[in-house]
Design a protein around this nucleic acid. Structure first.
Lengths: 342, 342
DNA sequence: GCAAATAACGTTAGCGCTAACGTTCTTGCC
DNA sequence: GGCAAGAACGTTAGCGCTAACGTTATTTGC
């Protein structure tokens, strides 16, 4: 498999095609001024020699690497995956390529990742969340490239933001429960300091309870993020054991909500009649589940699409960063909290 | 945000620290021979100046980019995500970094992606599946780097393989259904030519039926891959409408199996008594679902881990590729086909 | 006590590509 | 016919780093 003969370079192609290396370089670009016959000859020669363009050398010379670095908390999360998909789909054809890494919901791991990514000289950087270590923030601020924070509305953004208010999402769910006539409300997940967005949702939930003058102590820790279905089930047992008269519970994500829901089925707890269950994130499982699960749609894929638009706008002309409108989370009313239909 | 002053280079650090650039270069490596005090001085100077190492230039010079290119069919699939996680986790600390791209289950998109990746001069390449376009195969063969095909057992591998037999998985499920006393079996998914692994599972399923002398025509198309829960539900309706007396059905993945199962609940079809339902992939939803879903565990994360081991072995010494043992899919017996317990 | 080994640096020459200018030749226009 | 404008190339000089040698001082073995 390993070929001892070293692979051909642009100079080899140039020689074989009878032109200068610069002409070969131009032939591989879009708009460069090369006559059509010459371009064809060059591309054919390149293919014949098995020449493969070297983006690394090109990047070093032109100072344009074509990389967009992206950090997400977990690779195994359909929500973030949707955002990445929206990003990639809208970057296709621009020559920009994603450099993806995950932080495991750890700010220090994020810092490590950001530092590693910066050595690749990306042209833009996309982060999930608006909380970072001081050093990480410092690195990003002086990187001299567009920085886009997503999935959050940081009070003091580094550069641009494409996100929504996680706290509002929590508050929104309290309102929904109260309108439904529930007053003893619980929350599952978001206990550690790792998942700051989950914490924000819980904070919004607690704020909503306090504003409504309700008990705001029924909070159950559900394990390290990402909270799994299994941990959601366990947390529901804990919740019911401690506060058996709880009427409604919001879970930090649809996955834990589904776990909690199935535990209700196993324990013989009627949903939503005895206990209403809601999630977050509009995962597909919440729609198909029986009963279907009330959740909050945060337009994950649109976050990616708008982020792509931001990046392209910034790279074309170094214009002032237009600040996109915050996205508004939308409540999807389903059976698990008394919604009708599917 | 954009800083006009151009960022410091290794030469700047060298000057500020009173050493030669080469010494700075060595100070940033592990085992290079630099005295401890000098190294400390250099690293401190670098930090003070805000110097960021340039991996691109380093790669150009040393011909080691530190990239491992990986293609997966879909980013939004917990199975492949597990494999990637296993890979990343076992590559951590080696200085190797993943270059991830997805093919959308399309061989031509894979070819495009592979070609794009090769311009980044990766040190190894990991592919999902063993079917490629001729040109793609040609590119890979002469790339001169370790190529690892996963999630499959191709008859004519390009280089190394870390995978399992999808056909065996299908056959295994037929055997399980037959042992349970079912003889009218259906299969949902895997209709198009895109998902070749899904097709292999269906082929194994059909072969198993033929070997057992059973009807092998109850095959339902379920839409383009990746087959969603929703499509699984729709496919189950189609199946029941066409062959109402079907006793058991295998779905191409747990997601479609869950969709099918929930449709059974909605239609009042008793599972497993009137219809047994099984999936593939050991997604978490299959374990938590009520009833829980029989599935096949293919050790997705281990595929990633063993792939990482392969790569590291090949990069350390260019030894002959040791061929790893094929992984053996494992049947997880659950309630949806008559298994007891959870 | 002296050749040989070792540690800790410095020097030189690229890696493969492109930015920024040159150069040549054609074309159009009054 | 003369000249400006453009098309289609070629030349030169790096981009920021490291491999592969030098060089110098210090240590080691017998």
């Amino acid at each position: 498999m390993t070929r001892p003969a070293k692979p051909p370079t642009m100079a080899d192609v140039a020689k074989a095609a009878g032109v200068s290396p610069m002409t070969v370089s131009r032939a591989f670009k879009r708009d460069a001024s090369v006559s059509e016959p010459t371009r064809r000859t060059i591309l054919e020669t390149a293919e014949r020699l098995g020449y493969i363009f070297d983006s690394m050398a090109a990047g070093l010379s032109s100072r344009r690497t074509g990389f967009v670095a992206v950090t997400i908390p977990s690779i195994n999360n359909a929500n973030f995956a949707d955002t990445v998909r929206g990003l990639v789909e809208n970057l296709r054809g621009t020559g920009l390529q994603i450099l993806l890494g995950y932080t495991d919901y750890d700010m220090h791991e994020e810092e490590r990742l950001v530092e590693q990514f910066l050595t690749r000289r990306p042209e833009a950087m996309v982060l999930t969340g608006g909380k970072h270590t001081p050093r990480c923030r410092h690195l990003l601020e002086k990187a001299g490239i567009p920085i886009i924070e997503t999935w959050d509305l940081p009070a003091d953004p580094i550069d641009q933001v494409v996100g929504f208010s996680n706290a509002d999402a929590g508050r929104m769910m309290v309102r929904h429960f109260v309108e439904r006539g529930c007053s003893r409300l619980g929350f599952i997940g978001g206990d550690t300091t790792r998942d700051t967005r989950g914490l924000d949702r819980r904070r919004g939930f607690v704020d909503g309870l306090n504003e409504a003058g309700l008990d705001a102590t029924r909070l159950v820790a559900a394990g390290l993020p990402p909270v799994s279905m299994r941990e959601g089930a366990q947390a529901l047992r804990d919740l019911i054991e401690r506060w058996p008269d709880t009427e409604a519970v919001m879970c930090v994500s649809d996955l834990s909500a589904f776990g909690a829901l199935t535990e209700c089925l196993r324990m013989g707890i009627a949903v939503p009649d005895r206990l209403a269950v809601a999630g977050f994130g509009a995962y597909e499982v919440s729609e198909l589940s029986v009963p279907s699960i009330t959740t909050i749609d945060v337009h994950a894929e649109r976050i990616g699409a708008e982020t792509a638009a931001c990046i392209l706008g910034r790279l074309d002309d170094a214009a002032a960063p237009g600040i996109p409108e915050p996205l508004v989370p939308r409540l999807l009313l389903r059976q698990s909290t008394g919604g009708v239909g599917n």
